[in-house]
Simulated assay, not measured.
Amino acid sequence: MSRISVRGFAVASATAVTTVGAVVGVATGDPQSSTNLETTASGATLLADIPAGEQARVQNASLTEQADAISHAADADAKRSTEEAARIQAAKDAKDKKAEAEAKQKADAEAKEKKEREAKEQVASRSASRDASSFTPKSSYTISEVKSIAAQIVPSGQLQCFSNIVDAESTWNYQAVNSSSGAYGLVQALPGSKMSSVASDWRTNPATQIQWGLNYMNERYGSPCSAWSFHQANDWY
């Protein structure tokens, strides 16, 4: 910097103010003010002693330093705010990610548990079901009798789906014949003779037809409900 520092400028300014006060005191007859005037005048550099151009430079330098200090403080505050916001966001993201992972883990566990439960229920239902050979053949059957046989052969968890297919294919008529294709029976086997793999009485015994239909749905689709889903989408199975 040039000849005089900012601090010097401040001292000079204060001295000038003191000097002016002393002059006023002399004018009013205050002896103490007169003494202060003499002391100040003899020991201080007055602002008036600084060249006008130098005064302007000193003032500008002081204002610049003040502005720089304010700017640095603002930058520091902004940086702290940004870092704090980033820290808070990172903590939130980590929490959300953890919650998402825990939710997925829980959903996977529930899905696995449900699948295992359904498998156990299906096994239990099958083991409790009767085989077609356990029914004594009759000369004729009512629809309610045919449905009763189906309820004893088809696992309970799959019975409704099986029933939906029989409703759509034959409306529970075990002697139904498709005039176009020749498909026969409750589940409209094509050809009907396929059902002889269960028993030779496939034409007249609904139990034989039900057993064959259940075997077919399990082997081809995995279950009557899967077969029914396919049937709904394609109008055949």
Results as ranks from 00 to 15, higher is better:
residue 1 M to N: 13
residue 4 I to P: 07
residue 9 F to A: 12
residue 10 A to I: 13
residue 11 V to E: 12
residue 22 A to R: 07
residue 27 A to H: 02
residue 28 T to W: 00
residue 36 N to M: 11
residue 36 N to K: 10
residue 42 S to V: 11
residue 45 T to P: 04
residue 45 T to N: 07
residue 45 T to L: 14
residue 46 L to G: 08
residue 47 L to D: 01
residue 54 E to V: 14
residue 54 E to A: 14
residue 56 A to T: 12
residue 62 S to T: 00
residue 63 L to A: 14
residue 67 A to C: 00
residue 74 A to W: 02
residue 85 A to P: 00
residue 89 Q to V: 01
residue 93 D to I: 07
residue 99 A to D: 11
residue 100 E to I: 07
residue 103 A to P: 04
residue 103 A to F: 10
residue 115 K to W: 02
residue 116 E to M: 07
residue 121 E to Y: 03
residue 122 Q to T: 13
residue 124 A to M: 10
residue 127 S to W: 01
residue 140 S to F: 06
residue 142 T to S: 15
residue 143 I to M: 14
residue 144 S to H: 01
residue 150 A to M: 05
residue 151 A to L: 02
residue 153 I to C: 06
residue 157 G to K: 07
residue 157 G to R: 08
residue 157 G to F: 04
residue 158 Q to F: 12
residue 160 Q to R: 11
residue 163 S to D: 09
residue 166 V to Y: 02
residue 168 A to Q: 10
residue 174 Y to A: 01
residue 176 A to N: 08
residue 177 V to E: 03
residue 178 N to C: 08
residue 181 S to T: 15
residue 187 V to D: 02
residue 188 Q to C: 07
residue 188 Q to R: 11
residue 188 Q to E: 02
residue 192 G to W: 05
residue 197 S to E: 15
residue 200 S to A: 14
residue 200 S to M: 03
residue 204 T to D: 09
residue 207 A to Q: 02
residue 210 I to T: 05
residue 216 Y to H: 11
residue 224 P to W: 03
